Computed example of a mutant assay.
Amino acid sequence: MDYSREVRKLAKVLLAAMSEGLNLSSDALEKCLGDEFTQIFLTNYYPPCPNPELVLGVNSHSDRGALTVLLQDEIGGLEVFNEGNWFEVKPLANAFVINVGDETEVLSNGIYKSVAHRAIRKIGDVARITIASFCNPTLEAKIGPIAELTEVNPPLYKEHHFSDMVRYVRSRYYDGKSGLDNFKLPNKS
C-alpha cells in the first residue's frame, strides 16, 4: 500500500509538470482524468527460458491510459519503437521508466506522444520481473484535446469516454498498433 501511495504521488507530480509544460494550470491534465484517476498494478514475471531468441515477452503496443510508471529489474528487455527501429531501454538502478499513454496524447492534442514498446527476453537462464503502475482516467472520463490547445491547431482526436478506448483496445489485444487509430479525426489538409 505504501508503494501504491508513493507511485500515485509521483504520477501527480509528473502530470502537474506536464500540464505546466503545455502552458496550462498545473492541475489541467489530472482534472481531465475524472474525479480520481485510477491506478492499476501489473507485475510481470518472465521465467528463465532456454531459447530467449525465440520468445517475445509482450507484443508491441502503446499504453491506453495517461501515464505508466514502470519499475524494471536489472535484466532489462524493454524496447521502444522510434523512426522505424527498436531501441533498448537500459535499466538504471533506482529509476523508473515513464511511458506517456494514448490518452495523454489525446489530451495534449498530439504535443505529448505515446510510445510503442514491447518486452523481449534477453537472457535465457535468469528470470525477469517488472512492476507497472498504470495511471488511467476513470471509465466515465470524457477525453478529448484540451480546448486551450486547439485554439491555434485544430483537434487531432475525437472526444470519447475512456471506456470507449478500453473497449477498443481489448477488442484488438496487442496487435502492434496504438489505440489512438480509432480516435483520430480525418486530416483536413
Rank of each mutant, 00 (worst) to 15 (best):
P48M: 06
P50T: 06
P50M: 07
P50F: 04
N51M: 14
N51C: 12
P52Q: 11
L54I: 09
L54A: 14
V55W: 06
V58I: 15
N59H: 11
N59Y: 10
N59L: 12
N59P: 06
S60M: 12
S60C: 14
H61R: 09
R64C: 12
A66R: 08
A66M: 11
L67E: 13
L71K: 08
L71G: 11
L71A: 15
D73T: 01
D73V: 00
I75V: 13
I75W: 06
I75E: 08
G76K: 04
G77I: 03
G77Q: 04
G77C: 04
G77Y: 06
L78E: 02
E79Q: 15
N82G: 05
E83F: 09
E83R: 10
E83W: 03
E83Q: 11
G84L: 02
W86V: 07
W86H: 12
W86E: 07
W86M: 04
F87C: 09
P91M: 10
P91W: 10
P91H: 10
P91T: 07
L92P: 02
L92Q: 14
A93F: 03
A93M: 06
A95Y: 06
F96D: 01
F96I: 09
V97D: 06
I98K: 05
V100P: 00
G101V: 05
G101D: 03
D102G: 13
E103A: 14
E103I: 02
E105S: 10
L107C: 14
S108D: 06
N109V: 07
N109I: 07
K113V: 05
S114Q: 09
V115H: 00
H117E: 04
H117W: 03
R118F: 14
A119L: 13
I120G: 09
G124W: 10
G124K: 01
G124Q: 02
D125L: 11
A127F: 07
A127Y: 03
R128D: 12
I129Q: 01
T130A: 04
T130I: 01
T130S: 15
I131Y: 04
A132G: 05
A132I: 01
A132M: 09
S133Q: 09
S133T: 12
